[in-house]
Amino acid sequence: DVEPGKFYKGVVTRIEKYGAFINLNEQVRGLLRPRDMISLRLENLNVGDEIIVQAIDVRPEKREIDFKYIP
């Protein structure tokens, strides 16, 4: 289970104008929005990159997770 405030290693699987989709595993995916990136820009991410993200909002009923990147 993903818990708000905890850090997780994930893989960038898709990049859109509104953010990057990060997979923690095959069943768990969330969104990293540009506003939640500190010292990292969306255009510097590539599909396949491994990054450490912090879960900031977890909505299991909608199967949605918002992430934050903190270097």
Rank of each mutant, 00 (worst) to 15 (best):
L32K: 01
V12S: 00
G19N: 01
D66A: 08
T13H: 06
Y18W: 14
P71Y: 06
Q54M: 15
N23H: 14
A20W: 03
D57F: 12
K9S: 10
F21G: 01
I51V: 09
E61L: 09
V11W: 15
D36W: 08
Q27R: 15
N23L: 08
N23E: 12
N46G: 12
E26Y: 14
L45P: 01
F67K: 02
D66E: 06
L45H: 01
E3F: 13
R29Q: 14
F7Y: 13
A20R: 00
I38F: 10
R33E: 02
V2R: 02
P71Q: 08
I22A: 00
P34Y: 07
N46S: 15
R63G: 15
R59S: 06
M37V: 04
G5V: 03
G48P: 01
F21C: 05
G19D: 01
L31H: 03
K9F: 11
R29L: 10
V28C: 08
E3P: 04
P34V: 13
P34H: 07
D1L: 14
K68E: 05
V58L: 06
E50K: 14
E50T: 15
G10A: 06
N44G: 10
Y69S: 03
Q54F: 13
R29A: 12
L42T: 04
R41L: 13
I70N: 11
F7H: 07
A55C: 13
E3I: 15
G30V: 04
N46P: 01
E16D: 08
R14C: 06
N46F: 15
R35G: 11
P71L: 06
V47S: 03
Y18M: 05
I22S: 00
K68P: 02
A55S: 04
G30K: 02
V12R: 00
A20G: 02
A20C: 06
L32A: 01
A55I: 15
E16V: 13
G19F: 05
N44R: 08
V12P: 00
L31F: 08
N25L: 04
R63A: 11
V47R: 05
L24P: 00
F21N: 02
I52N: 05
R29I: 13
R41F: 10
N44C: 13
E16T: 14
R41P: 07
E16R: 09
I52K: 07
D1H: 15
G5C: 08
E43F: 08
D66R: 13
F21V: 10
E50L: 15
Y18D: 06
N44A: 12
A20F: 03
E26L: 12
P4R: 14
P34T: 10
F7D: 05
I56F: 10
N46D: 11
G48K: 04
E50R: 15
V11P: 00
E16N: 09
L40P: 02
K6F: 08
P60W: 12
M37H: 03
G30R: 01
G30I: 04
D1C: 11
N23W: 10
D36N: 14
G48T: 03
V47H: 04
G30A: 03
P4S: 11
I65F: 06
R59G: 05
P34E: 13
S39M: 13
L42R: 03
K17V: 14
K68Y: 08
L42V: 08
Y8M: 02
E3G: 06
E3T: 14
R29W: 13
E43D: 13
L24Y: 02
